[in-house]
Computed example of a mutant assay.
Amino acid sequence: MKDTRTLVGDEIIDHVSTLVEDVFARLAAIRSGAEALLAEDSLRARDLARLRPEVVGALGELVTGAGFITAPNLLVDQELGFQWWTLTPGEEPVQLLISLDPASEHFLDYTRQPWFTIPRETAQRHITGPYVDYLCSDEYALTFTVPLNVRQGFAGVVGADVFVKDFERAVFPHLRDFRGRAALVNSQGRFIVSNNVGQATGALARELDVPAWWSAGAIPRAENGVVLRRCGETPIALVAEQAGSAAS
């Protein structure tokens, strides 16, 4: 019988890459709208509400939340700006309101969050997670963010939230069909989803130094019966048993 494990691995990578690129593509309209706003003088907090059509339009499919988050001091009337909407199936979109007042005990300093700091520092799009999103849902989530830059420099990020359970539902049929252990990990080596119950979401793949592999260029490799491959141009990798290796 023909061994199809390599082919199935390719299918997983292609499918994950397509899902991720689709989420990032949903942010294009928000980014264009934000760029148009930034071209105006004296941008105020209330002006961010004009992005509502683009933000709400990005919701749906895997995306449960989306919006634009400004860099500090971009607005003329307050230090921070946050325009974010969420969607629950069967309900209307709801704006997420958070405290942007540093004097408030409920203040959220989003400038310290990795979904904000990493795109700011690298000028590259990023996926944060899996992490428990205590702000929006108390569920495991992935946050997709893209930096927005203007002539004056970094202006903020546009982003989208995806529940891990929905991402898992979309990719698990491909993982299930793989004849052996297969999992998706982030660039820090934490499991996002796996076909092995022993590899829980958020747990670290301790047998692999994924961060070092990623820093070295994420070149596909096979070592000790395990294949490590990046899923397209996304910050997600496939960890799978090499064809012919025995499950442990």
Rank of each mutant, 00 (worst) to 15 (best):
Gly189Trp: 04
Pro53Tyr: 02
Asp177Tyr: 06
Pro235Phe: 09
Phe144Arg: 07
Arg26Gln: 14
Val210Ile: 15
Thr18Gly: 12
Pro211Asp: 03
Arg52Ser: 07
Pro53Cys: 09
Ile98Gln: 04
His126Cys: 01
Thr122Ile: 11
Ser32Pro: 07
Glu79Tyr: 00
Ala246Lys: 08
Thr201Leu: 05
Gly153Arg: 03
Tyr131His: 05
Ile69Ser: 00
Ile12Ser: 05
Phe178Asp: 05
Asn195Tyr: 02
Ser245Thr: 13
Ala49Val: 07
Glu223His: 14
Arg181Thr: 12
Gly81His: 04
Gln152Val: 04
Asp177Gln: 14
Tyr131Ser: 03
Leu38Lys: 06
Val23Phe: 09
Val56Pro: 00
Leu37Glu: 00
Ala237Arg: 00
Gly65Tyr: 00
Ile118Tyr: 02
Arg31Met: 06
Pro114Cys: 05
Phe24Lys: 04
Tyr110Gly: 09
Asn149Asp: 13
His106Ala: 08
Asp47Ala: 12
Ser245Gly: 00
Glu241Met: 13
Asp177Thr: 10
Val227Arg: 12
Ile236Gln: 04
Gln83Tyr: 06
Asp41Tyr: 00
Ile69Cys: 01
Asn186Ile: 07
Phe107Lys: 11
Val150Lys: 04
Cys231Leu: 10
Ala36Val: 12
Thr234Met: 08
Gly198Tyr: 09
Leu19Asn: 03
Pro211Phe: 02
Ala141Leu: 01
Pro130Lys: 02
Asp22His: 11
Leu87Tyr: 01
Glu139Cys: 07
Pro53Val: 05
Ala237Asn: 00
Gln113His: 06
Tyr140Asn: 13
Ala58Arg: 03
Leu96Met: 10
Ala25Ser: 13
Arg151Pro: 05
Ala39Lys: 11
Trp213Lys: 03
Pro89Asp: 13
Gly57Ile: 04
Asn196Asp: 15
Glu105Leu: 12
Glu11Asn: 11
Gln124Trp: 01
Trp84Met: 06
Ala29Ile: 05
Ala34Met: 13
Trp84Asn: 04
Gly198Leu: 14
Val132Trp: 01
Thr18Asp: 15
Val76Phe: 02
Ser17Ile: 00
Phe191Tyr: 15
Pro72Gly: 06
Ile219Arg: 15
Ala66Glu: 05
Leu27Asn: 05
Thr122Gln: 13
Arg125Leu: 01
His174Ser: 10
Thr4Val: 11
Gln242Gly: 14
Ala247Thr: 15
Glu121Leu: 15
Arg31Lys: 15
Trp214Phe: 14
Gln78Gly: 09
Gly153His: 05
Glu105Tyr: 03
Ser17Asn: 15
Met1Tyr: 04
Glu139Met: 11
Glu79Arg: 14
Val76Tyr: 00
Glu40Leu: 11
Leu80Pro: 12
Phe82Cys: 08
Gln199Trp: 14
Val197Met: 14
Trp115Val: 04
Arg120Pro: 06
Val171Thr: 08
Lys165Val: 02
Val162Pro: 09
Ile118Thr: 15
Asp47Trp: 06
Leu238Lys: 08
Gly180Val: 04
Ser248Ile: 13
Gly244Ser: 06
Ala212Ile: 00
Val76Trp: 01
Asn196Ser: 14
